[in-house]
Design a protein around this nucleic acid. Sequence first.
DNA 1: GTTAGCACTCTATGAGGTTGAGTGCTAACA
DNA 2: TGTTAGCACTCAACCTCATAGAGTGCTAAC
Lengths: 342, 342
Amino acid sequence: MELDERKKKILKAVIRNYLETGEPVGSRTISKYTDLNLSSATIRNEMADLEEMGYILQPHTSAGRIPSDQGYRFYVDTMMEEKDREMVELKEMLLERQDKMETLLKQVAKVVAQNTQYAAMISAPSTHRNKVKFIQLSRVNPGQLLAVIVVEGNVIKNNIIPVAEDLSDENLLKLNILLNTHLNGLSMEEINLGIIAALKSQAGIHGNIIGEVIDAVGEAIKADEDLEIYTSGTNNIFRYPELTDNGKASELVGTFEEKQQLGSLIQESLENEEGTGIQVYIGDEAPLQSMKDCSVVTATYELGEGMKGTIGIVGPKRMDYDKVIGTLRTIQSKLDELYRKE
Amino acid sequence: MELDERKKKILKAVIRNYLETGEPVGSRTISKYTDLNLSSATIRNEMADLEEMGYILQPHTSAGRIPSDQGYRFYVDTMMEEKDREMVELKEMLLERQDKMETLLKQVAKVVAQNTQYAAMISAPSTHRNKVKFIQLSRVNPGQLLAVIVVEGNVIKNNIIPVAEDLSDENLLKLNILLNTHLNGLSMEEINLGIIAALKSQAGIHGNIIGEVIDAVGEAIKADEDLEIYTSGTNNIFRYPELTDNGKASELVGTFEEKQQLGSLIQESLENEEGTGIQVYIGDEAPLQSMKDCSVVTATYELGEGMKGTIGIVGPKRMDYDKVIGTLRTIQSKLDELYRKE
DNA sequence: GTTAGCACTCTATGAGGTTGAGTGCTAACA
DNA sequence: TGTTAGCACTCAACCTCATAGAGTGCTAAC
């Protein structure tokens, strides 16, 4: 069977209507509120076809139709009309420039959640590929060294390194020079065991203690930056009964609290990125079991210097895709703008 | 009317039973399952008295009794039998020592939530009163200085300071010495505008740029450490219908996500602290509107050096107070132990 | 002071009936 | 051949009513 123009129009009408009301849509409604000028009977025939083709389905025999996952997918892929979103708060927010990445991200998440009325999350940009700019070891206490590492994008890591034996000022200075000359300009990804070993052999005679410290610095650099993820508007899920019935809410809230779980979503989104960097996962398409009754829309953003992160929105399948995608696009461009200004 | 021994016994039985079952408790149940050997009729008379005195109440005329807030309060204050809690996971967890405060706190929250099956939160210890141990300014980029400040307890703060004009190596060194000699040993609280001004005048001739940097360091020290709070087991609230009915869940989840809101609870708990540092808020007693149908138990903990933080547990009023308080006490002592070992 | 007995209250449960939205099918129509 | 009016049918949602059962308060007797 073919999906002709009329069927498309009807499908679109069904989806639009269902997105608005959340109620199954009947043939009479379609017949009255479209410019097709067809009787409900004709619509019924067409709807039966659409159901057979898998685009819509009936919750029960005597109810109207609701879109199936396939129907949503078709809508998102071919029929959406993105809405432009003006977000005043966002503009104001970005005017007073945030020095702290954390604050910025939290605010973005909040604005997104408030604008869309869905649950939002945002991952801090990964800095693995950023280059080391500056390394410094200082003596804080006898027996404790402080290692500070700054990478491009002014991301700062610090670690306290316990040492068995004190280093002389002279050795500390040497070590600092050694570390900086060898590691500056390398990305954190590139600093591997081989490089660390080479460094150690260069340090030469000073032996054990220095070896220890170099190892610790290596560790500090490698240390899996624990995926920072911020969420906002988790409680928006309570606006949608289909996400809250039968204890589904518990699962979702759990997932949003255990931020690592959201990691797989971030991962997936960064990997599949192409084009606009916006992706829609409908129902089972999302990699998280707890979201099988949701739709998830993700967008990657870039803060320059290869620092890529992901914003995600989680809501019911009958999500206002147009609005959500419009919002995410606006955010993407604002963040881009923000970076360029710097 | 007086609360004699028999009434107390009956009250205790009602509360115990209700904590277990969550169902209103009838006179017959009490008559059968206590060692009082009284008929249900007698119990009924006593229960009528207890109701008049405000310790228990009836959801409706033909139902059993449930404890009132006053009843819970009486129970918590005078009749509780704390249960010793052995928490194997906790021991294991603390064996592999956590170097990062953040990881430690998250794990504690998780263990507490899992053990009690209520929602848990924990605030990072405040470091306002901790003394500055070490300050260092370094040049990262032309035009950007990195300020690293270490306070007792090895809490590290860092800030990038933009400078209009580059400082010479010599001046930077002088500045470092100046900052360390004057600020070391002071607590962050103690470093006020007066001290900063004195420092500036000491810096003397170098004038503007140095003044700017000193101001920025002052800012960095003052910068309200944004109350770090971690939560775990928020979704445990779904185990208790009385917290989930009529959209209450939404409010609670919101409060747990917006961590600042939990701040007032932390505050309250630290202020009212006395004795064991454990406090119970029943219903309206908690400072948060969203928790008016909950009970909240908080415990302050100390990681030495005056670093005090708060652990909180939020659950239904029919919470297993004995277990919760036992758990918190165990945690308190483990954390104390942990510090002593260091 | 304690208890047995009884009338009373109120919730929870389930059966039965009604309504209304919506369908599928058929036959007539353009 | 596509469209439509009409009709019988289905099913969830809602209301009502009756019943069972848990529990109470009160009274009178022990």
